[in-house]
Amino acid sequence: MSDNLERLIGNVALGDRKAFSALYDATCTKLFGVALRILNDRASAEDALQETYMKVWRHADRYAANGLSPMTWLITIARNTAIDRLRRVQSAEDVDAMAERLSDKGPSPEQAVVARSEAGRIARCLDELDPKHAAAVRWAYLDGLSYADLARKLDTPLNTIRTWLRRALLSLQECMSR
């Protein structure tokens, strides 16, 4: 699956529309799930999905160097596109620019393979966190909540949230690098 997606993205980078169509067919339900979860509205999620694939078409040539698995790369674009839409930030260039910069400096393929085999660590590392902190990380990642959103949701001052979540992220980072 992953090898096949990599091959398709490689062909899309060369302007192969059939590969683009096949890549869409293979991944659209997952990426739509991402957009729908974050936007919680079918029409907006459909727009976000189209925007996501337009970025994929334009940036496929930058995939090879970024060291992410194809699905992670695609989901990152879908997630950022949906969050931008959610926040009504009309600066698509920023997300484009992020996709671009990600490709600038990535790990070697060997490092990427190692990293992928260890990806499951996040679950264990989240378990090591205070449950409230782990929940906040999930809300941010899966639902696109910002510090400001979390502050409202938890009825806690933003700076307080920021302080404990930054500490939680440092623990998480430390755990994942073990």
């Binding site: 997952k30 739509f32 992670t72 990600l102 400096k105 996040i122 990642y141 980072q173």
Partner: peptide, 22 residues
């Protein structure tokens, strides 16, 4: 930039929580 890529790979396991939608 490397740190961002590392975080994306670290968090990718959470992607299984995104359901597939037709």
């Amino acid at each position: 930039q490397s740190e961002v890529a590392t975080w994306l790979r670290g968090l990718e396991h959470l992607n299984i929580s995104f359901s597939e939608e037709s």
